[in-house]
Amino acid sequence: MSRFAAFDLVPVDESKQTAKDFKSDQEVRWCPGCGDYAILAAFQSFLPELGLRRENMVIVSGIGCSSRFPYYLNTYGMHSIHGRAPAIATGLACSRPDLSVWVMTGDGDGLSIGGNHLVHALRRNVNVRILLFNNRIYGLTKGQYSPTSEQGKVTKSTPYGSLDAPFNPLSLALGAEASFVARTVDSDRKHLIEVLRQASEHKGAAFVEILQNCPIYNDDAFEPLKDPDARDDRTIRLAHGERIVFGANGDKGIRRDPTTAGLEVCAADDPAVLVHDATQPDPTTAFALSRLDDGALSNVPIGVFRSVDRPSYDQLMRDQIADATRSQGEGDLHELLTAGDTWRVDA
């Protein structure tokens, strides 16, 4: 069985796999330059590391550009309904512990039409990995603002600017009691793979926000995090057990802000600089980390915010069935139908 905790019940493939083994025969059809290509390539190159049998992997997606993902992987896959992938994956994961189930979703799919399923899958802690590609726009329907678009966004549906305040996907996930929450960036392949690796080591729901560029409808939305001259001053790379310091010269740190009980930027040599503890059961600090980004991408933590152990819903469900079977014996249909008050007619 797999050495990755999330897949401890999934059969492994002893043969030597390569990224090519996971490519399907379908032509990839995203727009040129789309961030999804980089995510797909990173994902395909990561899968051999898991060493799972291809037939025991299932990719479930909703609707949107990101949701085309399953077509490009030579595993089992379902391109389902807008927003509903977490619900479908829940049914699958609950009845099939031998599968490695992944949900691919986007900011519209996962946070707008499917918001309800996302938060409930996270709160239940179903053993699925949920990758949310956040490009802050509706791509497939050609450019309307999304629930992560900044307020005032001018799009086809909001020529005078959007009115609604955006979601912070990580704050939402943490508020929904997610046991694993991480963020990564489409263009940072190494980081992306490391986050996928850690998500695979987590039994239960693992939520990963991937900041993804849509060059057609929202180009350069995350440019400040990609520009070699600016990114290091804005990106905070979280590493469990290490002091939270960042900046081009490593001169900035993060400490508690006594006035708000949140977090604030300080000097790297400040003795109060926090040591990151992703396993802290109390989600307060992880939430404060998610709030460091004010929407303007000035201080954006990436990496694993939170990774705590909590029984997964599907495992609890299987345990209940096993316990009931053990204590009452396996169900007998005749016994069920004839239990309680019956009477016999001898004609």
């Binding site: 379908q26 037939e55 399953p70 992987l73 089992y76 379902m78 391109h79 389902s80």
Partner: peptide, 12 residues
């Protein structure tokens, strides 16, 4: 899913 060699993608 789990059936070797029959991996396929379904969709709406």
């Amino acid at each position: 899913p789990g059936t070797k060699g029959l991996e396929h993608r379904l969709g709406g």
